[in-house]
């Protein structure tokens, strides 16, 4: 198994510097190698019936948070919206 570090970095939206690339690759391969001795998996992972989830009642709560509170940590706000560079595609 040889992983394509550039491809993974792209998927993870990470930029790995050229110098760091081979170090990263080596480290990750070592870690992944230890996974190779895991035993074969049986059938597909079925949902676990033992712990069914308790569902929430459909009731709306108004006025919990203001826009100011929610956007208070935002790097850039314009017209009440989160501003980001133009999306591509």
């Amino acid at each position: 198994m040889r992983m394509d570090i550039q491809h993974i970095a792209k998927l993870a939206r990470l930029h790995i510097e050229a110098e760091a690339l081979s170090v990263f690759e080596k480290e990750m391969e070592t870690i992944v190698k230890m996974a190779e001795h895991l035993p074969e998996a049986e059938d597909a992972l079925l949902p676990d019936r033992e712990t069914p989830m308790q569902l929430r009642r459909d009731e709306a709560e108004d006025g919990k948070f203001t826009r100011e509170e929610m956007l208070m940590n935002a790097p850039e706000v314009q017209l009440g919206c989160l501003a980001v560079p133009k999306t591509v595609g």
Partner: peptide
């Protein structure tokens, strides 16, 4: 995602 002439990027309304 909204766009407004005044702002060059995109504006996200969540």
């Amino acid at each position: 995602l909204l766009h407004d002439g005044a702002y060059p990027g995109s504006l996200a309304d969540l």
